[in-house]
Amino acid sequence: MQAFLALVDISDESALAWQERALCAQTDPEAFFPEKGGSTREAKRVCQSCEVRAECLEYALANDERFGIWGGLSERERRKLRRRAV
């Protein structure tokens, strides 16, 4: 995965085209950015059936997104994933 992350160029609009197909774009954004201690269940449920879940997660990892649910994972879960990849 690290090799791909190095190739992601966020200035390239075509690299972000997946966002137009993301189910979260059709859902209440507050579900993906819950208050501290709030439930992430609804957001993760949406992510489970999203066709661009992998692209979303790759984007979040490449851009060190610190908040919200991305690719079905919380910030804590993404941090654990990064540690395992090193």
Rank of each mutant, 00 (worst) to 15 (best):
A43T: 04
T40W: 03
G37E: 05
D64Y: 09
D9M: 10
R53P: 01
R53Y: 03
A43S: 08
L57H: 04
E65V: 07
P34V: 08
L57V: 04
Q26M: 12
D64R: 12
E55R: 03
R41C: 02
G38H: 06
L73Q: 03
I69P: 01
A54W: 08
A85H: 12
F67K: 06
E30Q: 12
T27E: 09
S74R: 03
S74V: 06
Q2Y: 14
D28T: 00
A15P: 01
F4S: 07
R21H: 09
F33N: 09
R84L: 14
E13N: 04
L16N: 12
A62V: 04
R45V: 05
Q26V: 10
A54T: 11
L16E: 09
R41A: 08
W70R: 07
A15R: 12
E58D: 13
A31R: 12
R66H: 14
D28W: 10
V46F: 06
Y59Q: 06
S11A: 15
Q48E: 15
P29F: 08
G38V: 02
R53H: 06
W18E: 06
E75C: 03
C47Y: 07
R21Q: 13
V86F: 13
A85S: 15
L73N: 04
E75W: 02
E65S: 15
A25K: 14
S39K: 02
K36H: 09
A43N: 02
V86A: 14
A3G: 14
A54Y: 01
L81A: 13
A22R: 03
C56R: 00
P34R: 01
A3M: 11
E42V: 10
Y59E: 07
S39E: 03
A62L: 06
G72Q: 01
V86Q: 11
Y59G: 07
C50T: 01
L81G: 03
L16C: 14
A6W: 00
E13D: 14
W18N: 03
R21V: 00
F67A: 09
P34F: 02
Q26N: 15
R45D: 12
L61Y: 05
W70E: 04
A25W: 02
W70F: 10
T40N: 06
A43P: 03
L16D: 00
A17D: 10
V86H: 13
F32Y: 03
C56F: 04
E77V: 01
C24T: 00
P34T: 04
